[in-house]
């Protein structure tokens, strides 16, 4: 690890100012990705702005139609939240499958969403539920937020403060864990709303994506059998030493069926 300045602001405007005052400064939320990168000397930001003292970024609220989760809320808190367990159990289940207990205690929803790892779990939940990413300057729809491999719509100096989830009729997540890392080799989040079904896939490609044919089929008939015959094109999906693209494509269908099963309870 190379030396860096370290800030712990108490107010969001201070954090934003510190982030932009020195070029290449980085925000640190839970640090689950950033700290290993620093330790391996793969990144050497001149300053870290730690968001942990920003009290307004923590906590979970329910306004009747949406659940708002503060960006600095750890996965373990989401997984155990009575509000989330009652209103969007599929999202609590997703949070409970991330990493291991240590990661779930430190890692945050805001950090995960901002990092947009192609195999992270939260992007599937956020896109699958059609959530809204709330930042210090604006609100961004999930459909416009995730732009590809580690790319998001966030502008320099922009800080995620919360994620706002509409409450679905039903939702479920099924994850096929990569054997070693236990990231999603393929993870599928399925959510049923009055207006239709959304299906979001993580792990399979360079970024989270939706599957319109499955959404249409499930909107007609919210049952695993409705999508059993829908095949995903392997073109453009990820191939690595753990799984080639055709296997990932196959798993999208399998995991989507299982996500629907989970949603149906």
């Amino acid at each position: 690890m190379k030396p860096f300045a370290y800030h712990q602001p108490h107010q969001i405007p201070d954090a934003a100012r510190l982030l932009t005052s020195v070029a290449d400064s980085k925000l640190v939320a839970g640090g689950m990705t950033l700290i290993p990168t620093l330790k391996q000397r793969l990144a050497s930001p001149p300053a870290l702005v730690d968001l942990s003292r920003l009290g307004s970024l923590k906590g979970i609220t329910d306004d009747g139609t949406t659940i708002t989760i503060g960006a600095m809320t750890p996965h373990a808190v989401v997984a155990a939240s009575k509000v989330v367990l009652t209103r969007i159990p599929g999202l609590a289940a997703l949070a409970s499958m991330i990493g291991d207990p240590a990661v779930r205690s430190r890692g945050t929803i805001g950090g995960s969403v901002a990092n947009n790892d192609p195999a992270a779990d939260y992007p599937a939940g956020v896109l699958g539920l059609g959530a809204t990413i709330v930042t210090n300057t604006r609100e961004i729809a999930a459909d416009k937020f995730f732009l590809g491999l580690f790319e998001t719509a966030l502008e320099p100096g922009e800080i995620i403060t919360a994620i706002r989830f509409p409450v679905p009729l039903k939702a479920g997540y099924a994850k096929f864990k990569a054997p070693a890392s236990r990231y999603a080799l393929v993870g599928v989040f399925v959510a049923k709303f009055a207006g239709g079904v959304r299906v979001a896939v993580t792990g399979a490609g360079p970024g989270v994506f939706r599957v319109p044919p499955m959404e249409e089929a499930l909107s007609e008939n919210f049952d695993p059998s409705a999508i059993a015959a829908i095949r995903i094109d392997a073109e453009g999906l990820t191939s690595d030493i753990h799984a080639e693209a055709d296997y990932r494509a196959h798993l999208v269908t399998v995991m989507a069926k299982r996500a629907v099963d989970a949603a149906l309870g």
Binding site: P179, A180, S181, Y183, I241, H242
Partner: peptide, 10 residues
Amino acid sequence: LSGSLMDYCM
């Protein structure tokens, strides 16, 4: 290619 615990499955 399997140079870490992320890619070498114990």
